[in-house]
């Protein structure tokens, strides 16, 4: 075997282009792994669909299409679909995969290579985006088969999938952050339970103005509310600039915060 160093690093490529390239490589690996274990995606789709069916079954009679203004003429399933999509986006396993790699030494193996530190954070998040986009698409197609319509059409559908998938990146990113901080599978798993308050302290059954006052305050303070309302507007109303704008603003701000904290954490990790 030749034991000669070939000087394979850098080659004039910028740090950011290396970060992007490495992120796509790591993300591609995560997607390949997901395709090899499709059963791991099953809960991501099945549980949100289960909640959709149960919630609609329980409340559809209370909120008939006709006579319920906030449904804009659609069934209650259309109102519930965004909550199911966001629940699906909260199932990302990036944090747990990261803990597994930390515990098994693979994370250190990667860190001892010239891989971009930023890519160690971004790689699986990119995969989360792709996986969530695929699952959300399937869920919406199933919803269409049951008579739910996307008022904003195909462009709105695409915007909706992008917003939900970006939120999946943010949520998975915070779980990765927890994994990097605690290096514990139990703590990371426990931390993921934050999706309960984030998802249920929202106007997920009725619009915000019909919630009780304490619940309305909680929902107003909860950033997920604005993503849910943004997605919901695309399903029920068409393009509502204010609602969509607020949704993307929440995703953008939380994304920047998550990335800043993650990059700081991974750069100081030892």
């Amino acid at each position: 075997m030749t034991a000669t160093h070939q000087g394979t690093a850098g080659g004039g490529a910028t740090e950011s282009s290396n970060a992007l390239r490495d992120s796509f490589i790591l993300g591609g690996r995560a997607i390949r792994e997901a395709l090899r274990t499709p059963d791991s995606l099953f809960p991501t789709m099945f549980i949100p669909l289960f909640f959709l069916v149960v919630n609609v079954g329980q409340a559809a009679k209370i909120f008939p299409s006709e006579g319920t203004p906030f449904l804009f003429g659609q069934s209650y399933g259309a109102f519930q679909l965004p909550a199911s999509l966001l629940l699906s986006a909260s199932f990302g396993g990036a944090g747990l995969y990261l803990v597994e790699e930390i515990e098994g030494g693979y994370f250190d193996k990667l860190r001892a290579t010239p891989i971009s530190r930023m890519a160690l954070v971004l790689g699986r998040l990119y995969a989360e985006f792709v996986k969530t986009a695929a699952v959300a698409t399937v869920m919406v197609l199933l919803a269409l088969a049951f008579g739910i319509r996307i008022k904003s059409g195909i462009p709105g559908f695409l915007v909706m999938v992008v917003m939900v998938s970006l939120w999946a990146m943010v949520f998975a990113g915070f779980m990765q952050l927890l994994a990097l901080k605690t290096r514990s599978a139990a703590a990371t798993q426990g931390g993921s339970m934050i999706f309960f308050p984030l998802l249920f302290l929202t106007p997920n059954f009725v619009p915000r103005d019909q919630l009780t006052r304490p619940m309305e305050i909680a929902a107003t303070l909860n950033p997920v509310t604005y993503i849910m309302e943004g997605v919901r507007s695309l399903v029920l109303e068409g393009f509502n600039g204010a609602a969509i704008g607020k949704g993307f603003a929440v995703v953008g701000v939380t994304m920047v915060l998550m990335l800043a904290l993650s990059i700081r954490m991974v750069n100081n990790y030892d």
Binding site: H5, A9, R29, G105, D108, K109, A112
Partner: peptide, 19 residues
């Protein structure tokens, strides 16, 4: 610069089991 010149094998086989 160091990372381009070294190889590391730790105490446990650090491989990606799904690949």
């Amino acid at each position: 610069r160091i990372r381009t010149r070294i190889g590391l094998t730790g105490q446990y086989a650090a491989v990606d089991e799904r690949l």
